[in-house]
């Protein structure tokens, strides 16, 4: 079989993800032990076995209302940010970019805050988040290409920094004009980033576009290899560069913008996960994209578990991913800098 190696890695990663997910369902302020969980599942799914109704209701509530939506959301957002990061890196032939660095997350948070200010509609919040996420990446690219014509790794990163700074300031204006008793606290709390507010129906609503865009990126993965050689080589090898680039950027922006709508700005995941996966299995996007999705899901789930369990109060997830991500990225930088010149 041709893709044995790929299948092996994907299976291994999925298994790890499943174990982390199971532990996340069981662990928390109320610990559920394995045997109780098995009894619960047995009764819930097959109406078999013995479980007293009080325990059943309690566990049913904890799992369905609190832990399962949170687990699913963590996996979904981790996957969204990591695949987007990998795709942005290929599209711009630049291993230093990510949804955060390109300004997408800042743009999306500005858009989402606008939405919250203007309307109660969940859909409008999502649409504005995506629209401004897209504007932000466009602005970053524009600034990056203004100074030099040639593709410059550093200029694009600087463009992203500027774009992110712009939308962060615009967001401050929104905060300034927002009603300090209702809208402002909502915006601030949401921006800090937390998965704790997740509800199953909300997760399902955002899951559809995120899963669609991740699937799209997986299906396009063979083109990302060619695009990461640069435009000319990709064209000469038969790629419709303009089409692939615009579709890929839209999908990556959609997935990462929606993560902002659900849980605020979660930085670093989109930057470090593709690097870690690349170091483990090589740069071929056929494996990199799907594997980043799974590993990213597992990573964010783990980070969320730490944020819930480490202290008696919950640490915002965005803070935690930065604290974990920064040292990892320093190691990555040290190992990989030779290839970036």
């Amino acid at each position: 079989m041709r893709y044995k190696k790929e299948a092996k890695y994907l299976l291994l990663a999925t298994l790890t993800l499943a174990i982390v997910a199971l532990l996340s369902l069981l662990w928390g302020q109320y610990q559920i032990d394995m045997s109780t969980f098995v009894e619960y599942l047995n009764y819930k799914l097959f109406s078999k076995g013995e479980i007293d109704s009080q325990t059943f209701t309690l566990i049913d509530n904890i799992i369905l209302e609190i832990r399962l939506p949170r687990v699913l959301l963590a996996i979904l957002l981790g996957a969204a940010l990591s695949t987007s990061g990998a795709v942005f890196q290929a599209m711009f032939v630049n291993p230093l970019v990510s949804p955060g660095i390109l300004g997408v997350l800042a743009g999306a948070s500005f858009g989402a805050a606008c939405g919250m200010l203007l309307s109660d509609s969940w859909l409008i919040v999502q649409v504005l988040a995506f629209a401004f996420g897209f504007v932000a990446v466009g602005f970053a690219v524009l600034i990056g290409s203004m100074v030099t014509n040639s593709r410059s790794t550093v200029m694009l990163v600087l463009g992203g920094v500027i774009s992110a700074a712009l939308f962060t300031s615009l967001l401050s204006i929104i905060k300034y004009v927002a009603d300090p008793y209702s809208t402002l606290p909502a915006i601030v709390y949401w921006l800090m980033g937390s998965l704790s507010m997740a509800q199953l129906n909300e997760v399902a609503f955002v899951a559809i576009p995120i899963l669609l865009s991740i699937t799209g990126m997986i299906f396009m993965s063979k083109y990302f290899d060619l695009m990461s050689l640069g435009d000319e080589e990709a064209k000469a090898l038969g790629v419709n560069v303009k089409l692939i680039r615009i579709v890929a950027i839209i999908l990556a922006t959609l997935a990462s913008s929606l993560s902002v709508v659900m849980a605020g700005i979660i930085g670093w995941v989109g930057l470090i996960i593709p690097h870690i996966v690349r170091m483990a299995v090589g740069p071929s996007h056929r494996l990199l994209i799907p594997l980043s999705a799974i590993v990213g899901g597992a990573f964010l789930l783990l980070a969320d578990a730490i944020s819930r369990l480490a202290l008696s109060v919950e640490i915002p997830i965005g803070i935690l991913t930065s604290l974990i991500g920064i040292p990892i990225f320093i190691i990555v930088l040290k190992n990989a800098r030779a290839a970036w010149n």
């Binding site: 630049n94 291993p95 290899d225 990461s228 050689l229 640069g230 000319e232 080589e233 740069p283 290839a339």
Partner: peptide, 12 residues
């Protein structure tokens, strides 16, 4: 097309 080789940051 066989271009003058240039390094991609991704090491295939």
């Amino acid at each position: 097309y066989i271009p003058q080789y240039n390094n991609t940051p991704f090491n295939y």
